[in-house]
């Protein structure tokens, strides 16, 4: 914990980020957009029923939509915040000096990544009061909200790791950002497509579902699918009846993305500096 607090790169990055007006305007616009959506939804729901009441099932629907919007936000913003962390230092010609200090490569990568994650967490946490409006109307348990936030944290970590790794491997920031968005599209879109294909393939012939580990795998690494099972636990049983694999999606999701994060961070740390002894 002391290393975390005294990490010079982390402190410097946080200082620079929170001195930047763009950071605060970003959070402001995010909160304005969320507020407009939540109050608009409540207004529409109450005016359409004409009763002035907001039912718990509507409250849950609002919670679900907000949760997906926030996931979209994470998938959309994290690459932009992380994919330039190392490459922008290279472009600004500050990286070489940083690399000649006695900080380890892990300290540098960790500091860079943590500062980006901290900002995103601040953004998510700042939206909590608006999020909490759903508790006024019932239909959502605090534990469900807690697990959703753990899911966000893991997803953030995974995307941030991919972003930092690509930023280390690719020299130009713009290319690194595009590559990270490509990875996001694969995570959220291509895996969903493969999931549908795999289910169709498994149902070919008899028409009855047969065991399909591939379909289960694609569902496991697809964030919107896992989010759906967290919001609607019965969806987990339905998916299980299609793929015949009895492992909850969140288990595979946690293992896969933790391993992916570790692998990405490891690669970024390895590739940040040249291996001076490679030719020997």
């Amino acid at each position: 914990m002391k290393t975390l607090v005294t990490n010079p790169v982390l402190i410097k990055e946080l200082k620079l980020r929170f001195r930047n007006l763009k950071s605060f305007t970003g959070i402001l616009f995010y909160l304005i957009a969320m507020s407009i959506f939540v109050f608009g939804f409540i207004f529409l729901a109450t005016s359409l029923t004409g009763s002035g009441f907001f039912r718990p099932d509507e409250s849950f629907m609002l919670f679900s939509i907000m949760t997906y919007i926030q996931l979209g936000l994470i998938l959309f913003i994290t690459p932009a915040l992380t994919a330039g962390t190392v490459s922008s230092e290279r472009e600004k010609q500050t990286l070489n000096i940083l690399l000649t200090t006695s900080q380890t490569s892990f300290q540098i990568i960790f500091g860079k990544m943590t500062s980006s994650i901290a900002f995103l967490l601040l953004m998510i946490v700042s939206g909590l009061p608006i999020y909490s409006l759903v508790f006024l109307y019932g239909g959502v348990s605090p534990s469900q909200l807690f697990f959703i936030f753990l899911f966000y944290l893991l997803t953030l970590l995974a995307i941030a790791s991919i972003g930092v790794m690509l930023s280390t491997l690719i020299r130009k920031t713009i290319v690194a950002i595009i590559a990270t968005y490509g990875a996001m599209i694969f995570m959220a879109g291509v895996t969903a497509f493969f999931l549908l294909i795999s289910i169709q393939v498994s149902q070919m012939g008899s028409g009855a579902p047969s065991m399909s580990p591939m379909a289960h795998f694609w569902a496991t690494i697809n964030p919107p699918a896992v989010m759906l099972t967290l919001l609607q636990p019965p969806m987990q049983d339905q998916l299980q009846s299609l793929t015949m694999v009895p492992i909850p999606l969140w288990v595979g999701y946690t293992i896969f993305y933790l391993l992916l994060s570790v692998a990405c961070i490891f690669l970024a740390v390895k590739k940040l500096r040249v291996n001076m002894n490679k030719y020997k």
Binding site: T6, P8, I11, L16, R19, Q93, T94, N96, T101, S102
Partner: peptide
């Protein structure tokens, strides 16, 4: 050739590198 960080004061610049060592 080298660059410097935007929005960092002279004292903070040296402080950052001091901490880095």
């Amino acid at each position: 050739f080298f660059g410097v960080y935007d929005q960092l004061k002279t004292e903070e610049y040296l402080d950052f590198y001091g901490a880095s060592y």
